[in-house]
Structure formats: C-alpha cells, structure tokens
Amino acid sequence: MICAIVVGVLALGLAGVAAGAAGAARSADAAPQGDSGPLAAQPWSAAAVNAATASGRPVLVNLTADWCVTCKINERAALSSPRVAKAMREANAAYLVGDWTRRDDAITRELQAHGRSGVPLYLLYRPGRAEPEILPQLLTEGVVVDALKD
C-alpha cells in the first residue's frame, strides 16, 4: 500500500515538472522581444520615452510580467490586434515594453510613481504633455484605439 502511494506521488511530481517545463517554454516564446504580435516593441526605459516624445511621437508603454495573467490576456485580446497595430502606425506611436518578471528596480520606481504596486500598467505619453494618460488595467481594442486618437 505505501509503495503504491509513493509511486503515485512520484508520478504526480514528474507530471508537474513536465508541465512546468512546457509552460516555461511557452512563456519564453511569448515573452516580449522585438515584436509582440503586430506591434514592434522596444524595451522600456525613461530615456526611450523621453527620446520618442521629444521627436514628436506618442508612446504606449506596457509594463508587464510573464507571470501576470491579466497582462497576457490584454496582450492577446487587445495589444496584438491588427486594429491596434493600424492605430499605432497611423499615430506614429512608439511601443515600449517593460518586463517586470524579475522585479526590475527601474520598473518598480515607475509603477510607484503612478501609484501602483504591480503590473499591468499601461501608459500613453503624448508629446508636449508632462504626465501620461493611465489606461485601464483591462484593455480592449477600442480603449487603445480611442486613446491614440485623442
């Protein structure tokens, strides 16, 4: 009887490790890199925001993490849509992604500066405006497209 329990626990443990490895591989494939769906993303930094707005471009900032379920839903439902990509192109907007998966200190400070303690945080900077517009934590295509039109 004890042997059967030990074998069962070991089998469950091995299944969990295999599932975890498969999930990690999928996460690595989905991590924001140079291209997040149809939006070409660049790494977030305060300097990158300043450079883009100084050149007259709006900037959509996505502060995210691989473990953030809401972030992943927003990326799939809104940020990877062709309609949002078109609105970004029409607005000549830069798309910057800050990956907080490993708790980057600069991203932590940016979150705190906007009254947040975690991700997601979506900011839309416009040239000539000191403060960004904070977009909702749950995004839709329409929210992003409308924000870019203002």
Rank of each mutant, 00 (worst) to 15 (best):
Q112M: 08
E90Q: 12
I107H: 00
Q112A: 12
A106Y: 05
I107W: 00
A54L: 03
G56W: 07
A41W: 07
V59I: 08
L96G: 01
A41T: 15
A51R: 15
C68R: 09
T53L: 02
N92S: 13
A77W: 05
S45N: 13
R89N: 10
A94T: 02
L111Y: 04
A87E: 10
G56N: 14
A78I: 00
A94E: 03
R102N: 11
P82C: 10
V84R: 02
R109S: 03
T70K: 13
A91H: 07
N50K: 15
W67M: 06
W100N: 00
I73L: 12
L96M: 09
V49F: 07
E75P: 08
N62I: 11
V59F: 04
M88G: 01
T101K: 01
A48G: 08
A52Y: 10
Y95W: 13
L96E: 02
C71M: 14
A52Q: 13
T108Q: 11
R89T: 07
A106W: 05
L111H: 01
D104I: 03
G56E: 11
T101H: 04
A87M: 12
T101N: 07
L111A: 07
A54E: 06
R109D: 06
R76V: 11
T70Q: 14
G98Q: 00
A106K: 08
N74R: 02
R103M: 08
A41S: 13
D105H: 05
L96Y: 01
A47Y: 08
A41V: 11
V49G: 01
A65S: 04
A87I: 06
R89Q: 11
S55V: 04
C71V: 10
A40H: 14
R76F: 09
A106P: 05
V49E: 05
R103I: 11
N74T: 01
V84Q: 02
K86V: 13
E90H: 09
V69E: 15
A106F: 06
Y95C: 05
E75K: 14
A41G: 08
A94M: 07
T53V: 15
A51D: 15
A91T: 10
N74V: 05
I107P: 00
I73R: 14
D99V: 01
Y95Q: 06
T101D: 09
P58R: 07
R57S: 12
V49C: 03
A51F: 12
N50E: 15
R83C: 12
R76Q: 12
A77S: 13
A94Y: 01
N92E: 12
C71Q: 10
V61P: 02
V97R: 03
R103N: 13
T108I: 04
Q42R: 04
A91I: 11
I73P: 02
A78E: 00
D66E: 06
R102C: 05
L96C: 09
A93I: 02
A48M: 08
R83E: 15
K72Q: 14
D105R: 05
R103K: 14
V49A: 03
Q42F: 02
S55H: 14
T108H: 07
N62Q: 10
S81K: 02
E75S: 10
R76G: 11
L60P: 00
L96N: 03
A48I: 03
D66V: 09
A85I: 05
V97N: 00
V69Y: 14
A91Q: 05
N62E: 13
R109T: 02
V97P: 00
A93D: 05
P58G: 10
